[in-house]
Structure formats: structure tokens, C-alpha cells
């Protein structure tokens, strides 16, 4: 058995592959559901209803999708340039840290100025956090998978230290949490009384901007060239290392916006459970979208729907909601296979 390259797939085929991956995922997960003693059909129905069966469910899914769009974009941007940023989780938390450091009263500014300032500060912090691994990669050839992954743990412990120390809310009854951000630093809700907030709109705008950057600009062209063939890119005069730095800044900044949006739009303060693994799930989101920034919106909503739906399903069907993690993980595997099959065909002989 071996792989043979095949011509570029048509758009229809390109769209078909994520669907095929999802179908394969459902089939595989069915086995586990059966093992748990439930009917796959009713479980999947309950997941779908829990994710999109009511206005409340739908809004909850979009709320959950918001950080995933940011982290998915961060991963998509980096992976295009073959900069393997596994550290979106850390960048997210650093974004959250900057938001509470500057948003809890340090800057007495009106909302229209304070929110952009907080976004810029969060992005700068996330960007700088990824710049370190990028410099180590380009200067010394240190594998950024290792450095970005390990930074996740370092940053989480660092945040824990801050929350037990300087950032600890004196009124927090001893819990490791920060103060709430001031009202001017909060993102408004999109619908009165519902959890969906302006962060979702910012995420959509970010996706469109990233799409324009990758498709229309010199930087996007350079990033793709570096990702496909760094040696060839260097030969034609593309400053490969500089492009990787710019990619790192963009990717780290986008991931940090997830942290800003969660603090400013949803939680109000920084805690150690700000992210439910959004940095890691962003990898799945980006892969399901085949690294297309607009596709990230759809795949983030899909993945968020699985998590939200699975919570509702587990209450009704007595199948543990961990099935959501299994589904998302399985969909990553099937998607990786599907992407391989868009580019190669398998010859058995």
C-alpha cells in the first residue's frame, strides 16, 4: 500500500471531506454509545437538540464557539506557515491576565477606548508569548511543538501564582480568582438577559480579517510559501524567519483575544478554569476547517455544539458527557485522514 499525489480537488470535493469525516466520527462513536447501553440515534438526536434545538441552546452554542473561533484562527494561521503552535492555551490565559490587570480599574477610560486598549494589550501579550518559541525555532532549531506545549503548563502555574498572590481578589473569600473587571471593560451582551456577547461579533470580524490577510495580502502569500516550502521561499527572496515571526505575532495575538473575550464578555474575572481546553480544542477546530479562516467559524460552532449538546444529552440519556471529548478527538483523527485523502489516493498494490 502506498500514497500517490493527485491533482487539486474541486471545491465540492473539498467540502465533502469534512462531511465524510463527521459521518465516520458518528459511526465510530456509535460503538461507544452502544457500549454505554444507549441508542446511538437517540443520543445523537439529543446532542443535536441540546446544541441547536431551542433559542437558548443555540445561543449557548454560539457563546461556547466564541473562544474556539479565536483559538481556531490562531492555530490555522500558524499551521499554514507550518509553525506548530500548540500553545494557544497559554496565550489565551496571558490574554486573560492582561485583561484583568488593566481592566479592573487601573485605566479610568470610557468603554469605547478601554475595550480596544484591553484587546491590544491582550494581543500584544499573547504575541510576545509565542515570539519566544518562534525565535528559538528560527535561531536554534528548537522544536516549537515542545516549547509551546510546555509553555502551557508554565503559564497556567504562573496564572495560579498570580491568583494566589498579587491578582487575588481580597473580597473573593479565599478563592483563587481575580477581581471583576470594571463595567467599562465589559463587552455588552448581544441580547438582553442572554449570555451571548459582543465577543462573538469580534470573533467573526477577526475571521474575516484573517481570511483577507491570507488570501489577498503579501503577508498571506509569504506565509503560505514558507509553509509549503521554506527552502524554496528563501531562494526567491522571501525573508523566511521574519515571516515566521510575523506569523507567531498574529497567531499568539488571536489566541490571546480568546482570553480577553472570555474575561470581558462572559466570566468577568480571571480564574484557573477560564478555558475548558479551548487552546487545544482550537487545533481540532482549525483542522476541521482545513485551516480556512472562514471555515473556522463553522467548525468552531460545530465543535461547540457537540460540547453543549453532550451536556444536555447526558442529563437525558445517562451517557456521560465525556462522549463529547471522544467525539471531538475522533473527529480530529478522521479529519486528518480525510485531508490526506484530498491530496493523495491510496494504491493498495
Amino acid at each position: 500500500m502506498r500514497l500517490e499525489a493527485k491533482p487539486a480537488p474541486t471545491l465540492a470535493v473539498t467540502l465533502l471531506f469534512p462531511l465524510a469525516a463527521i459521518v465516520a466520527t458518528l459511526l465510530l462513536v456509535s460503538l461507544l454509545v452502544l457500549a454505554a447501553g444507549a441508542s446511538p440515534f437517540s443520543v445523537f438526536y439529543l446532542v443535536a437538540r441540546g446544541a441547536a434545538g431551542s433559542q437558548f441552546a443555540l445561543l449557548e452554542t454560539l457563546t461556547r464557539a466564541t473562544p474556539l473561533i479565536f483559538t481556531g484562527l490562531a492555530v490555522a494561521v500558524a499551521f499554514r506557515a507550518k509553525l506548530w503552535n500548540i500553545g494557544a492555551e497559554a496565550q489565551l490565559y496571558i490574554g486573560g491576565v492582561l485583561t484583568v490587570v488593566l481592566g479592573t480599574g487601573a485605566l479610568p477610560l470610557p468603554s469605547a477606548i478601554l475595550i480596544p486598549v484591553l484587546m491590544a494589550a491582550a494581543m500584544a501579550a499573547g504575541a510576545l508569548l509565542l515570539l519566544g518559541p518562534a525565535v528559538l525555532k528560527t535561531r536554534f532549531g528548537v522544536d516549537e511543538v515542545v516549547t509551546t506545549l510546555l509553555l502551557n503548563f508554565i503559564v497556567l502555574l504562573f496564572v495560579s501564582m498570580l491568583l494566589e498572590g498579587v491578582l487575588k481578589d481580597p473580597m473573593g473569600l479565599g478563592w483563587p480568582q481575580s477581581q471583576k473587571v470594571v463595567a467599562e471593560a465589559q463587552l455588552p451582551r448581544l441580547i438582553q438577559g442572554k449570555r451571548l456577547h459582543l465577543g462573538f461579533v469580534i470573533a467573526i470580524i477577526a475571521a474575516v480579517v484573517v481570511w483577507i490577510v491570507t488570501k489577498k495580502t503579501k503577508l498571506g502569500y509569504e506565509m503560505r510559501a514558507v509553509g509549503h516550502n521554506p527552502e524554496g521561499a528563501r531562494f526567491v527572496g522571501i525573508p523566511v524567519n521574519l515571516v515566521l515571526m510575523k506569523t507567531a505575532l498574529l497567531s499568539g495575538g488571536l489566541a490571546a483575544l480568546a482570553g480577553f473575550s472570555e474575561v470581558s464578555g462572559l466570566k468577568g474575572n480571571l480564574t484557573l478554569d477560564l478555558s475548558a481546553g479551548y487552546g487545544y480544542t482550537g487545533i481540532v477546530v482549525a483542522m476541521l476547517a482545513m485551516l480556512n479562516p472562514l471555515g473556522v467559524i463553522a467548525s468552531a460552532i460545530f465543535v461547540a455544539g457537540i460540547f453543549v449538546g453532550a451536556d444536555a444529552m447526558s442529563r437525558a440519556a445517562k451517557v456521560p458527557s465525556y462522549i463529547a471529548d471522544v467525539m471531538v478527538a475522533t473527529s480530529l483523527l478522521t479529519m486528518v485522514v480525510a485531508i490526506l485523502l484530498t491530496r493523495y489516493r491510496i494504491r493498495w498494490r
Partner: peptide, 13 residues
């Protein structure tokens, strides 16, 4: 292949 072109990009690119 390895240096002169970027195989997965288009002729135009």
C-alpha cells in the same frame, strides 16, 4: 522541485 518552485502553490503564485 525542492528549491526552484513551491510545488503546492499555483503556477501564478
Amino acid at each position: 522541485h525542492a528549491v526552484g518552485t513551491i510545488g503546492d502553490m499555483s503556477v501564478t503564485e
